[in-house]
Design a protein around this nucleic acid. Structure first.
Length: 359
DNA sequence: AAATGCTTCAACCGCGCTGGG
DNA sequence: CCCCAGCGCGGTTGAAGCATT
């Protein structure tokens, strides 16, 4: 037994809206507002439409100041950064882009941005692989088919994108520590095994073959990078507060030529140098794609101290920057010139993001 | 010029959440 | 506390337009 339909489907018109219907709806809402009840609205307006359909039409097309198409590079950057940070929360992303609707952004991501990003990765990987004379595989060793069934699942795709970022930035992160993984249902285990079996080359092995190990230089960054997300938010931070308060997963060589353990957990089977190379390669790709300026940033102890939860989890706060609670609210308040959807329902949502993606 | 394939995007669908009764 | 109507969201669909053969 399914749920009751929201309206009488038989007596409701479906499909594209006519100019007359648009005009009717717009005129009514301009004059009376929505009345706080979309279900009752079509009757009042005299439209044979479902209330949900009216709402959608108004929000996505008829309401004032809607922008269609022509996404700017700045908007691209914001969408990409937020997608990597929070996933397909289109309404939240839309709230950061005045005049854009969640539907528009969702379509834009699915039809263009995603392909642009993955397409570039594909191209870049092909370049890497061509020097090896191997067949085309992505950085995870998978058959590099950007449109493969594996990527058709948005959840898996997002996971993959995020894992790429996460593992490149922090080779000792959760994703690279199976011992930290929660127990899975046997079917889930099986699925993961199947996915892994597709990987002819483990991630690091692939890069090990592709690239020589770097020689760390005293005082230099060794490959961990500030993600575009972090850079973007850092920029926003600066513009909002006039200071930089974000932190990034940047590994440093201290004066003794050893890793600064404040920021980098002790190695456990994965060579930092390889991770560094992976990161720099990916950074180049992503920076190129996002056209985001990479900002040199030296994290301070007191800044790290803000993130006790990361310490407890024995991982550095990685460069995939999570909106800190107060920051996000403040940012939302100042950037969200648009009305509509509440940007954040509560701090809890983002605590979940932090926990969920960093665990 | 016609057929076919591909891309785009408006609209629909169904589910989770919320608040009022 | 429970139920239910309505809202809002994310995923999906399918028609229209465009590109290619």
């Amino acid at each position: 037994m399914g749920r009751a339909p929201c309206c009488d489907k038989a007596n409701v018109k479906k499909g594209p809206w006519s100019p007359e219907e648009d005009a009717k709806l717009k005129a009514y809402i301009d004059q009376h507002g929505t009345g706080g009840n979309w279900i009752a609205l079509p009757q009042k307006v005299g439209l044979k439409r479902c209330g949900k359909s009216c709402r959608l039409r108004w929000l996505n097309y008829l309401r004032p100041n809607i922008k269609h198409g022509g996404f700017s590079e700045e908007e691209d950057n914001i969408i990409c950064s937020l997608y990597i940070s929070i996933g397909s929360r289109w309404s939240i992303i839309a709230a950061q882009l005045p005049g854009r609707t969640d539907n528009d952004i969702k379509n834009y991501w699915n039809t263009r941005l995603k392909k642009k990003l993955l397409g570039r990765r594909k191209q870049s990987n092909m370049n890497n692989m061509s020097s090896m004379g191997g067949e085309t595989k992505d950085a995870n060793g998978q058959e590099d088919d950007s449109y493969s069934p594996g990527l058709s699942s948005s959840a898996f795709e997002r996971l993959q994108l995020h894992m790429q970022l996460q593992s490149l930035q922090n080779p000792l992160s959760f994703y690279n520590n199976p011992s930290l993984w929660p127990k899975l249902h046997p079917l889930q285990e099986k699925m993961i095994q199947n996915l892994q079996s597709l990987n002819e080359f483990p991630n690091t092995a692939l890069m090990e073959h592709a690239l020589p190990s770097p020689q760390p230089v005293q005082g230099q960054k060794v490959g961990f990078y500030e993600s575009p997300t972090a850079a973007k938010v850092n920029e926003l931070e600066k513009s909002l507060h006039g200071i930089s308060s974000s932190d990034n997963s940047v590994a440093f060589i201290n004066e003794n030529n050893s890793m600064d353990s404040t920021h980098v957990p002790k190695a456990n089977g994965i060579e930092q140098s390889n991770a560094g190379i992976q990161a720099s390669v990916f950074q180049a790709e992503l920076d190129n794609f996002l056209n985001t300026k990479t900002v040199d940033f030296v994290p301070q102890e007191d800044q790290m101290a803000e993130f006790d939860c990361f310490k407890e989890m024995n991982v550095s706060k990685d460069g995939v920057l999570w909106w800190s609670m107060n920051d996000f609210d403040a940012r939302s308040a100042s950037l969200n010139a648009w009305e509509s959807t509440s940007v954040l329902h509560s701090q809890q949502i983002f605590q979940e993001y932090e926990l969920g993606y960093n665990l």
